[in-house]
Design a protein around this nucleic acid. Structure first.
Lengths: 222, 222
DNA sequence: TTTTGTGAACTAGTTCACAGCT
DNA sequence: AGCTGTGAACTAGTTCACAAAA
């Protein structure tokens, strides 16, 4: 007596805030699953992880009816559905652009592998690095071979971890190679065609936002 | 003929979206300054960097009247004001928690130093690492000495780059040491007292959001 | 004339509250 | 009885549009 499983394609366009939360819900469910919890109500989920129950229900409702009235959600079932909605039911293949400090760290970051991403290759322009590999064995290719390797290795996602100066130029090559999804660690916003999704992680903005908070604080106690 | 400079303390609480944009504006102004531009209108700024002119004006208006009607903003002047608002007119001292791959990469990340942050120390628990230092010379201390070193080195901000399992526990120690601002790279949300500001960079959520986009794409062309 | 600073209008996102299913 | 799924109410954020300043 499991799985009503009425998944539907979202008709309305769903906001990025919602999809980000789906990731969060998925992580919560993974924890519940490993805690041996079989079923959970939106209420309980919200309390345990400091979320809002109505929002959880609304977010899920974009994609189907996954709950059972009077009961809640079957943890395993909802988890499986969320993985499918997020496209995590297949392995996604990732290339890291730039084999500097940050690129190498990202290539070996265990959090990526955990949810089914595979870091397959890195690219760099420095002869000294090309042919080498990261600590965990991700090979470093010549940026010149990008197109060829992307095709051969079926790369889905590129991570940009090159210096700010060359970010746009590298991104243009990534786009030309046919990659449709990019995670950008370089500061500033880059231009991509409309059919390419780019998501930025701007460390400077994050730190400056903390700086602002500290500055307000010290202003407050005149 | 410079600087009307009517800076004011924001009376209304200003949203994080606004403060994040202030960082962005600051970066744009730095570029304009090095391009030799002396004055810029909100309109021109918006066009050049794909922003909204009204929003720029509104964001700035929370903090004062920095513009000159009929002219625009003096680049140098506005830049100086933004730096002050963001609390970047003093050097902020940062400690990185965790001297793993990611921690070491962050410690040497040039983007941080650029806008006036100083990565002063790292902390770890592994005897093999303690006493060692990052490539650029940031020393690695024993986590046990956190309180002492934070006091002596006047650390303002902690960056959490430890494995997910120990993140909350390390954070608790950071808070106990009196640090009021934290940038968290570990996945999942951590608990802090109300007077501590924590900002998360969740790489898993970012990647999964890209995965969702790709999944929608392949659904679309049935 | 040009461009700011800002109320007013609009749009997006969140939370409430309850009908209806199990 | 309990909990979902969802319209309706509310709150936050963005954009418009214009009066006032230089």
């Amino acid at each position: 007596m499991n799985s009503p499983n009425k998944r539907r394609l979202a008709a309305e366009p769903v906001s990025e805030l919602t999809t980000n939360r789906l990731s969060v819900y998925l992580r919560c469910l993974s924890q519940l699953e490993s805690d041996g919890v079989e079923t959970i109500s939106s209420q309980a989920l919200a309390e345990q992880f400091h979320l809002n129950a109505a929002q959880i229900r609304k977010d899920l409702a974009y994609f189907g009816e996954f709950g059972v009235r009077g009961v809640g959600y079957y943890v395993k079932d909802l988890k499986r559905n969320l993985r499918q909605i997020l496209g995590l039911d297949r392995k996604l293949r990732v290339a890291v652009m730039g084999a500097g400090n940050l690129g190498l760290a990202l290539a070996d970051y265990p959090g990526f592998r955990r949810e089914g991403f595979e870091i397959v290759t890195m690219f760099d322009v420095a002869d000294a690095k090309i042919g080498d590999q990261s600590r965990s064995g991700v090979p470093i290719h010549d940026l010149k071979d990008l197109k060829k390797v992307v095709r051969k290795e079926h790369i889905d996602i590129a991570v940009i971890a090159v210096p700010a100066e060359s970010a746009q130029q590298v991104l243009d090559q990534v786009v030309a190679a046919g990659i449709k999804a990019v995670l950008n660690f370089s500061p500033g916003s880059l231009k991509v065609p409309a059919d390419v999704k780019i998501k930025g992680v701007d460390l400077t903005v994050s730190l400056e936002s903390l700086s602002f908070y500290l500055a307000q604080d010290s202003d407050a106690q005149k």
